[in-house]
């Protein structure tokens, strides 16, 4: 399913086409990502949402080339400025990673080395792709720390990761991702554990990067409210597939997929104070024994015989697509 808005067509930074990333396990094939397509234009922010286990992180890891056996990209194309990333060698990929493409992980210690000082790591990250002096690299590192709201960045440079709070570590990781003003940043739930004021600081920086440098962003989260305020486009993932996607207003205000309805209904908010929240019954399915057809049907109030087949992609309005046999205008109570 691909939705390309007219404005993005001339310059999509990333175009993912029918990506499949499967894990070949003893018990069978686990289809973590099973035919995912989307584009992210220059300076645009795509919110990738879904419950845990829906394949959001694996989508991100696939793009950046961090899938290890028994996992493998089995098909699809990942066009980054017209080069297919899935065809690049590890060496070519390393040149792009951290330079033109960066990833911010849920756990900042995936980025940070616990035994090295912050300045050592950041200078190294700068020099890996830019031939400048150590002093210049250090100055750039310090500026990047300032950009993510770290006070007295000069002093923090000489700290070790364990001397910083979790929130501060995450901001260092975010600063590292911004060092080379990449064309694409994939952010995997980086603010989920942060307080609202710190989260807002980071979201402000991210917006600035998209605005000022044309950086395209994939913002992975299960928090629809963050996506509402941040994203241009939204893709809702369920069991390895995108079930609804499009412009943020279409998906959040005129959602048609029963799963998207469920997600929206389960967000606590002012107007539903002290009333029961909408519950999606049941749990996310085990991807290992996924029967054919719509993966949501065991939890869907509108499921019928038709849903035992794969639902086709429909496009109810421009830049809004979904996979469902029975699109619903209204919430199922």
């Amino acid at each position: 399913m691909t939705v390309t808005s007219v404005t993005d067509r001339n310059s999509p930074t990333l175009e993912v086409q029918d990506l499949k990333t499967h894990f070949f396990l003893k018990g069978g094939v686990l289809r973590a990502v099973d035919g995912v397509s989307f584009t992210v234009g220059r300076g645009k922010i795509l919110g990738l949402v879904g419950e845990s286990g829906s394949g959001k992180s694996i989508t991100g890891f696939s793009i950046i080339g961090l899938i290890d056996p028994p996992g493998r990209i089995t098909s699809g194309r990942i066009l980054f400025r017209d080069r297919d990333l899935s065809k690049l060698s590890e060496k070519e990929m390393r040149q792009l990673r951290g330079n033109r493409i960066a990833m911010i992980f849920q756990d900042p210690m995936m980025t940070l080395n616990p035994v090295l000082r912050i300045d050592t790591q950041m200078v190294e990250a700068v020099l890996a792709h830019d031939k400048i002096s150590k002093q210049e690299a250090r100055a750039r590192a310090r500026d990047a720390l300032g950009m993510v709201g770290i006070p007295s960045p000069e002093e923090r440079l000489s700290a070790y990761p364990h001397q910083l709070s979790g929130g501060m570590r995450q901001r260092v990781a975010i600063a590292i991702s911004m060092l080379h003003q990449p064309d694409l940043i994939i952010a995997d739930e980086p603010t989920t554990a942060l307080d609202v004021t710190i989260q807002a600081q980071i979201l402000a920086e991210v917006q600035k990067l998209a605005r000022d440098h044309g950086t395209a962003l994939i913002w992975i989260t299960h928090d629809l409210s963050v996506v509402a305020g941040l994203a241009d486009e939204v893709a809702v993932m369920y069991a390895g597939r995108i079930v609804e996607q499009g412009n943020v207003d279409s998906v959040l205000d005129r959602s048609l997929h029963p799963y998207t309805h469920g997600l929206i209904g389960s967000v606590p908010s002012q107007n539903r104070a002290r009333k029961r929240l909408v519950q999606i019954p049941g749990m996310t399915p085990n991807l290992l024994d996924l029967p054919p057809g719509c993966a949501f049907r065991s939890r869907c109030a509108h499921a019928d015989m038709a849903c035992e087949q794969d639902p086709p992609i429909t496009t109810p309005e421009p830049n809004h697509a979904l996979r469902c046999f029975h699109p619903q205008r209204e919430y199922a109570a």
Partner: peptide, 22 residues
């Protein structure tokens, strides 16, 4: 604090934040 609550009905916000460190 309240100004920064992410909300479903607020789109394309200009995030800013209470300045400074906790």
């Amino acid at each position: 604090l309240l100004a920064e609550i992410p909300r479903l009905d607020l789109r394309k916000r200009r995030f800013s934040a209470i300045k400074g460190e906790i």
